[in-house]
Design a protein around this nucleic acid. Structure first.
Lengths: 254, 254
DNA sequence: ATGAGCATTGCAAGCATTGCAACACTCCAG
DNA sequence: CTGGAGTGTTGCAATGCTTGCAATGCTCAT
């Protein structure tokens, strides 16, 4: 809607790919160098980009601090965290919490496995949306039309032979997940990693977040992991209960 | 430098305080509601702000993903991580990695303590700059003039009786740290928590990052923690060596 | 030294941005 | 059911911000 701001913001994902110099930024934006310079300057003043010693620009530290605050504003995270820790203490595996927002699913909390073999993932990293258990849970709750629209828009990379191959299969899987109230990912993302997940619901019954337990099958088999399902669901329900007890969004005095 | 972008970006820290509605944003910016609306729309399109069900705006998920990528671009982090893990495995305490950028010091990596009593901190959170061991290390390496300027600009909150009380004391402390090549924080931030830290240097000898080991004194006394100093310094030096071996910034083919 | 390559600045022209006013909508209170 | 307050949204004309150009600095390597 605003050309200038639009251009400026387009610089951020561009720099996320790696440091770039002025000419490169100007080219990618399709504007004159002097224009790019002024946009970069403004971003710099706000700390969103940083100029390294070789004069190239990269993303700045303020961005990291802002993201931090963004996460702390998500009250579901605050409420869920102790539950996740407790679950981790009783089963020892990696526990994730994820939310859906604007066609993306992303992890907003994680408790690390206590086993030496750990899976790679990081808070903030967008989730493999077509295969992850938490993604299925979150998308399964979308209204029919939106779900269909999104499923069509997605890519279906075959991380492994067990990955969801296409939109039709994905939609079927979502139906199943919706009916049974829990989800799995059995080697659909990484050959040797399995997950079991359950949804967290707000007061109105809508899914507001999803959690999962993940473990490589060198530690436990998929069947063994599935025995944790009742515990996972109980934890998710406990979080749901506590969450819907409170007001969904904090009110600020006028 | 660019008014429009400047206004748009000013919205982000504002929303970091918590969700706000259109009127509130317009007021804080000192612009007409319609103007604020269009700026927010643009931010929304880029995923930097999100509109929650009650129509209020808050920071968006893309911000978190961007911050994630920002951190992954910091090559010092990649290099240091395995060293930090190894240090954690041999001593069991919390290990931090921090960098200085534009008058702020912030944690960019952390390995959690294996003891049940843990200190609170989060990656991305700005560090208590006047007391933290890592902050002292990073600031101690700044050129005289910049150091003095920054020291004057800072606040000196008395978290505990042992906190650095004022600019003069801080500058003295920085001199000391610079000369001895390591730093401590003995209960200056949290009464019961102590830290020992060492600097990580680039090929030109300049400090590019700092690391520290932290432990509450219910686990180890300050004196016991200090016996780890040689190990901490050796780890920091190992990271420095590996870092200056590579090119400091990755080169991209033209 | 000299030139290439990049960043930076001043300036005039043009168009994107702005504030206004009118409209649409939701939610209460009467 | 109806009116009104509060909020978000849209079309429009004027102006002032943004833009690209061209000229100037600056740094580095030949």
């Amino acid at each position: 809607m605003s050309q200038t701001v639009d251009r400026a913001l387009s610089i951020l994902p561009l720099l996320a790919e790696g440091p770039a110099d002025l000419g490169r930024v100007a080219d990618r934006l399709g504007v004159h160098k002097s224009t790019a310079l002024r946009l970069l300057r403004t971003l710099h003043e706000h700390g969103l980009v940083y100029r390294q010693s070789d004069q190239r620009y990269r993303l700045g530290a303020r961005l990291i601090a802002l993201a931090q605050e963004a996460m702390e504003n998500l009250d579901i995270r605050e409420i869920a965290h102790p539950h996740l820790v407790r679950l981790n203490e009783s089963c020892g595996h990696t526990v994730h919490l994820a939310v859906y927002e604007e066609s993306e699913v992303l992890y907003i909390d994680k408790v690390e496995s206590r086993y030496p073999v750990r899976m790679y993932s990081r808070i903030g990293k967008p989730v493999a949306i077509t295969v992850a258990a938490v993604a299925k849970l979150l998308l399964a709750d979308l209204p029919e039309s939106e779900r269909r629209l999104l499923a069509d828009k997605l890519d279906y990379p075959m991380y492994t032979p067990r990955s969801t191959p296409n939109a039709a299969a994905f939609l079927r899987e979502l139906e199943k997940v919706r009916d049974q109230g829990w989800a799995t990912d059995l080697g659909g993302h990484e050959e040797s990693i399995n997950c079991v997940g359950a949804p967290i619901r707000g007061g109105d019954g809508k899914v507001v977040a999803a959690m999962s337990v993940s473990a490589p099958n060198v530690v436990v088999t998929a069947d063994e992991l599935l025995t944790l399902l009742p515990l996972v669901r109980r934890t998710a329900d406990a979080i749901s209960g506590e969450y819907s007890g409170r007001t969904p969004v904090k009110e600020v005095a006028p």
